[in-house]
Design a protein around this nucleic acid. Structure first.
Length: 574
DNA sequence: GTTAACT
DNA sequence: AGTTAACTCTCAGTG
DNA sequence: CACTGA
């Protein structure tokens, strides 16, 4: 079963279900999680296991903060023999065949589902044991989660083994009868010989000979005739759309009227860029479409452009949208998004190409944006973040903008981060430098200032390092400049390395590829003092904020002419 | 999201 | 015609 | 050394 889309493959390789035999693509290495799948050992072992051991694999694969599937817990061994089949529309549609034994549900993924014809032997891939409570589950597993997709209860009832089921499973031949609503009579599960390289057990599920056995011709297959839930009568579509309703209730609703409005707005933007996929949702939690993103950038463009214009830029592109809360939790944006630094073949004409010398001495085309068309072209490419160099393209070797990144231990209160920014400002002021502050979209702050183009990157970075270490030296308990042990111990990491050649920092007014759609927002020092909250500066709130602002908090940034002087460097011991 | 290079 | 990879860089830690 | 995660 080769995967359809490479990106999704990467993101979901560890999804097994029916796709247990999925061939690996070259790019997608076997995730460690998949290696941890060891249903064989768990299921075949005759020794008594504790309940927690039995379901360890099941738990390991799921994030119960995200998925509506039951966690299941230590269960009493009721000796009951429940049976059920779930129709599961994950990466591939398949049927999950489950038999209760020893307090868990033994499970097989059957890609083609069961057949009533004894000669039809259906592949059944053994998967991890599931908790008994799973037998009641019907609903939608969120995208990005293990087995993401719609689950329908297709059949349920009881089963009865012929002989000792433990021995039969060890032997690899389980004969049993089913007493379900849609399947009845004798069935067999037979384990096939394991081929070298097989990661999971393959079994065959087929009908045993009895009165209920049918030849494929004489009787319709229940898989074909029964299309609805055995419990709720719902179709797969109905189950799936139920999710939409509950899901949408927890976010800002986008009505068709609003969609039209956004499309209209987009159509009125004067631009040469042609847009596609305007209704595609890029921020799931806020229900924000690509049209909404384009509208946002069209609005902030006059505010943003002065800081973005004519600097080498790196894009963080997420054509399928920002990671949702669930996705960010387990597998961050590395798989959903990718960085683009070079123009390569992808860059549209509206984005400027700038040949820049690489470390090795060769030249490669970088990108720069100089006007609205360029910005919107980047958005059309699915860019959710724009990162800029600290220089302009007409003199790439002479930087002109310093960014001191204050990156706090996540446990630190916001107030401590704000205080750090004020201390940084005070130090710079003492040296004779005016500075401005912006949020980053997360819990960090950037203290920024312009300087005249005099130093090369080495000297420039050296100066920012000295500033950082000075602050660290003054308050070693509060600050660290060591990226290694940056985290822990309640410190703020002062990242001066953003001031090196080729390094970048998030551009003012850029969106972030994060679930909450926060914006890297220039703010006033007074606002920071008054306790402005970075999580409230979002894509949705920004237009109103800009309207309400009496003056641009960074108004003086662009006019300020100041230099890193010999005297300043001397004062820092350089 | 786009392109080029494959099967 | 349909499928797949590439689209950053660096660095510490791990086996 | 190859690979991963940050």
């Amino acid at each position: 079963m080769p995967a359809k889309q490479p990106r999704k493959t990467t993101r979901t390789t560890s999804k097994k279900g029916a796709g247990a035999s999925a061939k690996r693509t070259k790019r997608a290495p076997v995730p460690r999680r998949a290696k941890a799948t060891a249903p064989k050992r768990v299921a075949r072992s005759k020794t008594k296991r504790s309940d927690s051991q039995k379901l360890a694999t099941y738990w390991k694969k799921r994030d119960f903060e995200v998925t509506p599937e039951p966690k299941g817990g230590p269960t009493l061994e009721r000796g009951g023999f429940g049976y059920l089949i779930q129709k599961h529309d994950a990466r591939r549609l398949h049927y999950d065949f489950r038999l209760e034994l020893d307090g868990v549900l033994l499970s097989w993924a059957v890609p083609k589902g069961p057949s009533l014809a004894p000669e039809e032997r259906r592949l059944a891939v053994r998967t991890e044991d599931h908790p008994i409570e799973y037998g009641d589950f019907e609903g939608v597993i969120p995208e990005g989660q293990y087995g993401g997709g719609t689950v329908m209860l297709w059949d349920r009832g009881t089963w009865k083994p012929e002989g000792d089921p433990h021995e039969a499973i060890d032997k690899g031949h389980l004969a049993f009868s089913l007493e379900g609503e849609r399947l009845r009579g004798r069935f067999h599960l037979v384990r096939t010989r394991r081929k070298p390289g097989d990661k999971s057990e393959s079994w065959l599920l087929f009908k045993g000979k009895d009165a209920a056995a049918a030849t494929a011709k004489s009787k319709k297959e229940p898989i074909e005739t029964e299309k609805t839930s055995v419990v709720t009568g719902r179709s797969m579509e109905e189950i799936a759309s139920d999710r939409k309703r509950t899901w949408q209730s927890s976010r800002v609703e986008t009505t068709p009227a609003e969609r039209t409005q956004l499309r209209d707005l987009v159509s009125q933007i004067p631009t040469t860029v042609s847009f596609t996929n305007l209704d595609k949702i890029l921020y799931a939690e806020q229900g924000l479409s690509k049209a909404g993103l384009i509208a946002y950038y069209a609005i902030v463009e006059p505010y943003m452009m002065p800081y973005l214009k004519d600097r080498p830029v790196t894009l963080v592109r997420c054509p399928d949208g920002a990671p949702s809360k669930g996705e960010v939790h387990q597998k961050p944006k590395s798989t959903l998004c990718f960085y683009q630094k070079h123009a390569k073949t992808h860059a549209p004409d509206a984005i400027i190409r700038v040949p820049i010398e690489e470390e090795g001495g060769t030249k490669d085309d970088y990108m720069a944006i100089s006007n609205r068309d360029g910005l919107l072209a980047a958005v059309q490419l699915g860019s959710l973040e724009l990162h800029t160099w600290g220089c302009h393209i007409d003199d790439v070797e002479r930087p002109d903008t310093v960014v001191m990144d204050l990156d706090p231990d996540p446990d630190l209160p916001w107030k401590a981060v704000a205080e750090a920014a004020f201390e940084m400002r005070a130090l710079l002021e003492e040296l004779g430098l005016d500075s401005w502050v912006k949020t980053t979209g997360g819990k960090g702050l950037h203290v920024c200032f312009p300087v005249t183009r005099r130093l090369d990157w080495e000297a420039f970075k050296g100066f920012t390092k000295a500033v950082a270490t000075t602050l660290e030296g003054a308050r070693p308990n509060r600050y660290t400049t060591n990226p290694i042990k940056a985290r822990r111990k309640g410190k703020v990491f002062i990242d001066y390395l953003r001031n090196g050649r080729g390094a970048t920092a998030i551009a003012p007014y850029s969106t972030r590829a994060r679930p909450n759609a926060t914006i890297a927002t220039p703010i006033g020092w007074d606002e920071l003092k008054d306790g402005i909250r970075p999580e409230e500066l979002t894509l949705r709130s920004m237009p109103a904020r800009l309207d309400a602002l009496k003056k641009d908090p960074w108004a003086r940034f662009l006019e300020t002419k100041q230099s890193i002087t010999a005297a300043m460097r001397k004062r820092l011991g350089l």
